[in-house]
Write a protein that binds this DNA or RNA. Sequence first.
DNA 1: GTCTATAGATCGATAGAC
DNA 2: GTCTATCGATCTATAGAC
Lengths: 194, 194
Amino acid sequence: MTKNGKPTKRQVILEEAAKLFKDKGYVGTSMRDIAGQVGMEAASMYNHIKSKDEILDSICFRISDIYIAQLQEVEELPLSFGEKIRVLIRLHIQLMVEDGPDVSVANHDYKYLPTSRLTEFTEARRRYEKGFAALIAAGVAAGEFQAVNPTVALYTILSAVRWVELWFKPGRSLSAQELEDHIITMLLNGLEKR
Amino acid sequence: MTKNGKPTKRQVILEEAAKLFKDKGYVGTSMRDIAGQVGMEAASMYNHIKSKDEILDSICFRISDIYIAQLQEVEELPLSFGEKIRVLIRLHIQLMVEDGPDVSVANHDYKYLPTSRLTEFTEARRRYEKGFAALIAAGVAAGEFQAVNPTVALYTILSAVRWVELWFKPGRSLSAQELEDHIITMLLNGLEKR
DNA sequence: GTCTATAGATCGATAGAC
DNA sequence: GTCTATCGATCTATAGAC
């Protein structure tokens, strides 16, 4: 947002692009499609963005920067490992609910980044996953968690949180808060009674 | 396979197409790309397939037919609800390990099916999810499972199983069997000690 | 059944008037 | 900063020789 609260043309383009990329994919969306949603001709958009690639780049790295920052904050909180994992799951779901199309693009269309940026993006995600897995491993070592394989637990959590992007719509019977609670219960306590 | 054990040209085309669709997406893969992998010119492929759409159609519906058939078989087995869910999770992982590219395409590129076929595919998936959720709800009602929201549990399970497609490679430190065991433990027992 | 050649549509991006 | 017009590349699919 600008100081007067009105989004810039560039922000509108990025936002409409993310919605279209989510629905039709990066390659399946044309600059003309985006322009149609924004309300200008495709050629005019080049006064606000450099290329189609750059739109994708902005979306993907904005999201990955948020993830990295969130992980760092949680790592420094004085909480048990179980509580840290809970916070991270909540943050994942909240980001998805608030920024659905962008998260979706960063999850699926990142692979269309040009080679050097793709490498950067993949490394950022690897760092994030490594930090997350370390929290799980530490929880296992501390006796808080069951003797799970940290990698399996990590990807199970990260994936289990992804379906929210396909499913959650604000007017649903479940609120975002209830959704968080249910997913956390399922992942931390499991399906079966013991 | 044909009777002499040699795959037909059509099968080779479908197989190479699925691998490319998985990596570059349906729209991001050209008929020339597929032809290059198969070892013929793009024009020659039209003697074996009707169109690019038809390749996608064959892949998606072959997978959805398998899912529907597997669910029906499991529903009729004389097992507890917990055991039925376990079998379904195992079948999911096995299909993904054995038929990775096709499952990946059915999961991500189905949206590029032409409208009428997209409707059919979506309805088939809805039937599958409904049947799966009913097993979870029955397990809750029978007191086998915790009081989870069946929809949340359903999508958590289905998604948790999807990362295997991104991660599993035959030469990994974890075998397919061990992977199944770990994921099932995580989903049925949860991460946290109780 | 495989090839070369190409039709016809659409793509990202630019030039240049206003 | 927005438009019209268009370039050059690339796409799916077909025609027709062999």
